[in-house]
């Protein structure tokens, strides 16, 4: 479903996983925080679809890159959230995806702006 909103960019296939892993590098977070973090750091340029976020979280958990635990919120002790935490395997995966991403980005850049590379 293409969004009509201007200025927002559709996430590239597979990049959401990397962004989630990267977000969790700062420490455990729950779904809402992860979504908000991505949106805020990109100045609302990247809008995280909840229909993709939660399946991605569960998928990453299944693969063992994330671990999840119900914990009371730091601000409001009465509320419990499901906090996701990066595992050792997750960190490795993030490193791998990052380097892959860098390679691809530079490759794309070379095709798109060959002169600047000169």
């Amino acid at each position: 479903m293409p969004k009509e909103s201007s200025g927002r960019i559709e996430l590239l296939q597979g990049t959401l996983d990397m962004l989630i892993l990267r977000t969790l590098l700062f420490g455990p977070a729950h779904g809402h925080q992860i979504a908000k973090h991505i949106q805020r750091t990109t100045d609302d340029l990247l809008q995280v679809e909840h229909g993709s976020l939660y399946p991605a979280l569960h998928r990453l958990e299944r693969k063992g890159w994330l671990a999840a635990k119900w914990e009371p919120a730091s601000k409001d002790q009465k509320r419990e959230y499901k906090y996701y935490r990066l595992t050792a395997a997750g960190k490795k995966q993030l490193a791998a995806e990052e380097s892959k991403w860098k390679q691809m980005a530079s490759a794309i850049a070379r095709v798109m702006w060959p002169a600047e590379e000169g």
Partner: peptide, 11 residues
């Protein structure tokens, strides 16, 4: 899952 999504909505 239900609880997780509800907590999200509440947040």
């Amino acid at each position: 899952l239900d609880r997780e999504l509800r907590s999200h909505l509440e947040a």
